[in-house]
Amino acid sequence: MAVCVAVIGKDNSPLYIGGVGNDTSTDNELSRQWLVHTALDALEERLATTNTGNAGTNTNTARTDLRDLYLGLLYSTDTHKIYGYVTNTRIKLVLVTSSTSPSGSNIRDAEVRTALRRLHALYADAICNPFHLPGDQITSPKFDKQVKNIMMNNV
């Protein structure tokens, strides 16, 4: 399902970017980074609107459930869909699905939601490591493996 998963710190620095790419030419690390990076704008904007609440005329469109960490679809391109998730500590989890692949094109929102929840749990496990410094890049191979697993499982 997912082609890329990213964990982004609260200062918008990349903590982890992992992806499964069967097509290395296009799904390489750099293009994934571009995708996730550009999603940050929309992500931040949603957070801002969630926080400030209902500013101006857009009362109805403001985020209704503050406790919902799942932000939904951030934006989509021709080939990818990007979903967002924000923990209470402002760690952003971004999941990228490929809309070209058959499994990714008709993915349901709920699936993404569960996948991101599981990712959140994995992240929490990873930073429970006493030797991990918050704000550092996550280098744990276990985390990497499990994240890859999530991505593959859902395919």
Binding site: A42, E45, N58, T61, Y75, D78
Partner: peptide
């Protein structure tokens, strides 16, 4: 003008398609 960035971005995103 309405200061609604998300709307704006969704309109702009549509341009791509």
């Amino acid at each position: 003008e309405q200061n609604n960035s998300l709307h704006a971005s969704s309109f702009l995103q549509n341009v791509i398609f």
